[in-house]
Amino acid sequence: MELKDRLKWARKERKMSQARLSEATGLDQTTISNLETGKVLSTSKLVEIAYTLRVDPRWLATGLGDMEGGAQEPRAAYSALTDELVFHDTEIVEGGNPLTSDEVELPCFYEVEFSAGDGSTQVVENHGHKMRFPLSKLTKRGVSPENAACATASGSSMEPTIADGSPIAIDKGTRHIIDGKIYALDHGGMLRIKRLYKMPLGRVRLVSDNADEYPEETYSLMGPDSPKIIGRVFWWEVFD
């Protein structure tokens, strides 16, 4: 089942109309209808919808786990949960403990050397490794969990914004260029993080925040050396 199917199923199981769910969550009824038909793929109120319907937020967002696995909290508990997340700001964690109702496992992007042994690399997803990420952070930004992935920034080209070794989160569902936003790129087998700016004739500017050491680059999006956009970087961890 997709999100639209799980949402419709849960709402009918609770014998709740779209109008009533709209009133309980403060979400426009048209948006709820669009979610159930698949016209809208996510919403920042997905966690609140889950608690209103008394279902596990992780199940509603991804289909993982049981429908009622973590759904006993009343709506007041949702407020407490969001307050806690605001103050404590839980980020990516790794470990063998079971996932909580507000966690999802995201695949990771890596550079992997080709088997030919000539030093050439390719960018692959997951490669057997995952990171945990708060579902509430995804829904707050309107990122669908199935479109989310993680990576690790390498090098100093985006300093001081993104430090070397910082984990980042990528929305693979946003590949169109929004001027000035940060994107993850597969560029000739290298995983690169740059700000992108559109140019005429299908060209794009790659800009580093550390412009003194890394000059601006320009490429054709259709050329043989063009970077492939993996997705927009919507979160990164800041080290001091």
Rank of each mutant, 00 (worst) to 15 (best):
S17F: 06
S220W: 05
P145W: 12
E91D: 11
S154F: 10
M67C: 13
T82K: 13
I32K: 02
D171I: 00
K4E: 13
V112P: 08
E84I: 09
P134I: 10
M199Q: 15
G95C: 09
D66Q: 10
P227E: 10
E113S: 12
I168W: 00
R58K: 14
G173H: 00
D56N: 14
R58L: 04
L138F: 07
E111V: 11
D102E: 10
S44E: 01
M131Q: 10
N97V: 10
K198E: 14
N34R: 03
I168K: 00
L7E: 02
S42V: 11
E73P: 06
T25V: 02
G128L: 14
E48N: 06
T174R: 00
K137T: 15
D28E: 10
D164F: 01
P98C: 09
M16V: 02
P145I: 09
V204K: 01
K45D: 07
E237D: 13
L196K: 05
V104I: 15
D179R: 08
I182M: 02
L81R: 06
D28K: 03
F234V: 03
A71Y: 08
L138D: 00
T25A: 04
D83F: 06
H187Y: 09
G142N: 12
I168E: 00
G165Q: 03
M67K: 08
L191P: 04
S17T: 13
T82S: 13
D5M: 03
E84C: 07
N126S: 11
G188Q: 07
D56V: 06
F234P: 12
T30K: 01
L196M: 11
R20P: 02
S17W: 13
T43C: 01
P98Q: 11
V104M: 07
A211H: 14
S120L: 11
S208A: 07
E23G: 02
S208I: 01
T100W: 08
R11V: 12
I178K: 13
S42I: 09
E73M: 08
P107V: 04
K45F: 02
T152Q: 07
M158C: 06
G26H: 01
F239A: 15
R20F: 03
R6Q: 03
E103W: 04
E2L: 07
E159R: 08
P167G: 01
F239I: 15
L60E: 13
G117H: 10
H129D: 07
L64E: 15
A61L: 05
F234T: 05
G223W: 12
E159V: 12
S22T: 02
S136F: 05
K15Y: 02
D83E: 10
L21K: 03
I182D: 00
Y51F: 14
W59M: 04
F239N: 15
S166A: 15
N210F: 04
G117C: 14
Q18S: 12
D209P: 06
T90F: 07
H88L: 09
E13G: 09
L7N: 02
L60W: 03
E94F: 14
A169G: 00
C108A: 05
L27I: 06
T43A: 01
T25C: 05
G65M: 06
L41W: 04
L191Q: 06
I193M: 12
H129W: 08
S115R: 14
T139Y: 05
F114N: 15
F133L: 11
V124Y: 03
R75I: 15
K140P: 04
I49N: 02
R6T: 09
E84R: 10
G180A: 14
I230Q: 11
A80H: 06
L138M: 10
D240H: 07
P160T: 08
V104H: 12
D212A: 15
